[in-house]
Design a protein around this nucleic acid. Structure first.
Lengths: 250, 250
DNA sequence: CGACATGTTGAACCTCATCAACCGACGTGG
DNA sequence: CCACGTCGGTTGATGAGGTTCAACATGTCG
């Protein structure tokens, strides 16, 4: 739970693996140079609080690797993850005194961070940067609303399948790069969240998540290599489970 | 379900009741004049589809009165309202070929509409306008995430209380203007949604919504004047029910 | 008046939460 | 080194909360 992440010094966009996908992607040279000047790379360990609820925002960040949970907590201890921030996503709530939720590292995280004040000045100076961040926010809003459907209308089974499908889309796949013959409909990845986190993301309990994973495994929709590593033989089948098709597999 | 709303002609911002709260609120004279030029006031009837799912966006709008539902529908007919748009709110998804959900009038609606292309040109020309809309979108995102907590973690009773509290905050109160002695903690308003809509907003069934309303009524937390008109004697009590305090009332 | 939409209430059922036991991995200290 | 506690995860038994099915009430419009 260290609040004091490792500072790794200045940014070098040339070698950045998420540069073209992140908000920096469509900037002019001038914009990028200015952004570059205020950026610092930091590392966080799984469990670190990156931004605290109701605390003043001190910095923003582009996530370079790892996954960050955005989490809401109520007075009586209930928790709900209201968003996941993946590599190339932007972290932080611009133009607000304080943060509306916790941002906690779900895995080890590498981030390119920008001090709050300097970044907001830059936003004002470069409409192109602000526009890019705006588009980003619109996409986040679309995703949040899609997830509202999952939370409000899907069964436990569909929720878990939806979650796995989301991770398959957003997380790096393992053991595929070397195999050009790989089945385009298969996937193999590491779950970035614990069962408790998955439950908090889906509005379920740990036990229900565990049971539904076992169920999907028994059906053959997924294989659980190690509790954290998942193999999906056919993503289309998984997606159809996420939509509510629960027929047994041949 | 008319797709052909009444056109009421040019915009006159001087008399607009939501002008200072809407995105037009913080514009320069030049910006407002340009916006004025492309705006048209339209009326929609309850039930009208204002923007259709996956159809090209043809216009945006500031809602002047009434309530619009943003609704997602799945292939098997399940529905989830993913947002409510009230008077002074902005309606529409900028910078996207198509709309990610249905926008349907929940009540009769008056809106100040802007053609898609012309409005996006204006956004590019006036960073101030784009900035205002950006702030607006950030607030929408915060609200959406707050609602994710409601959907994922609250009981039926808490959900219904949360909904009533939201409406009490956002909808015009009735029969209060003339009474300066009115209890600041009381409220009286018309529900802009049917039971079916409320159910779709809360991820519940019609029956559960009805039962929970009856329950709140029996407790004395609310009074149901007419099925659609609600009196809340003490908003603080309602809010505490929304947070999960279910003790009986004295 | 009858037809239809909207809303309420009751009874039975089912999904998922709760409580509890158990497992394996890991780290620590005697 | 092993005993021990802790943490993350799985599985089982039980029950509550919410859905489903059904009947009925109310209101509105032709």
């Amino acid at each position: 739970m260290s609040q004091d992440p490792i500072h790794l010094g200045r940014v070098t966009c040339d070698t950045c693996t998420v540069r073209h996908r992140a908000v920096c992607g469509a900037l002019t040279d001038a914009e990028l140079t200015d952004l570059n000047r205020i950026g610092r790379i930091r590392k966080f360990k799984a469990g670190d609080i990156i931004l605290a609820d109701e605390e003043p925002t001190t910095f923003f960040a582009n996530i370079m690797s790892g996954v960050v949970k955005l989490e809401k907590t109520s007075a009586d201890g209930r928790q709900q993850i209201v968003g996941l921030v993946f590599a190339s996503d932007f972290l932080g709530r611009a133009f607000s005194k304080s943060n509306p939720y916790f941002a906690q590292a779900a895995t080890d995280v590498e981030a390119c961070t920008f001090p709050q004040a300097a970044f907001e000045v830059l936003l004002r100076q470069h409409p192109g940067l602000e526009h890019r961040l705006f588009e980003n926010t619109l996409n986040e809003l679309d995703s949040a609303r899609e997830w509202m459907f999952v939370l409000g209308r899907k069964s436990a089974q569909e929720k878990v399948a939806s979650f796995l499908h989301l991770i398959a889309k957003r997380q790096p796949l393992v053991g595929c790069a070397h195999d050009p013959e790989a089945n385009a409909h298969a996937a193999r990845f590491e779950l970035p969240l614990t069962r408790a986190d998955i439950a908090d993301f889906l509005g379920l309990t740990i036990e229900t998540v565990s049971r539904q994973l076992s169920h999907l495994k028994r059906q053959g929709t997924i294989q659980l290599v190690s509790g954290r590593e998942v193999v999906v033989p056919d993503l289309r089948l998984l997606e159809s489970k996420a939509q509510g098709n629960d027929e047994a597999v041949a």
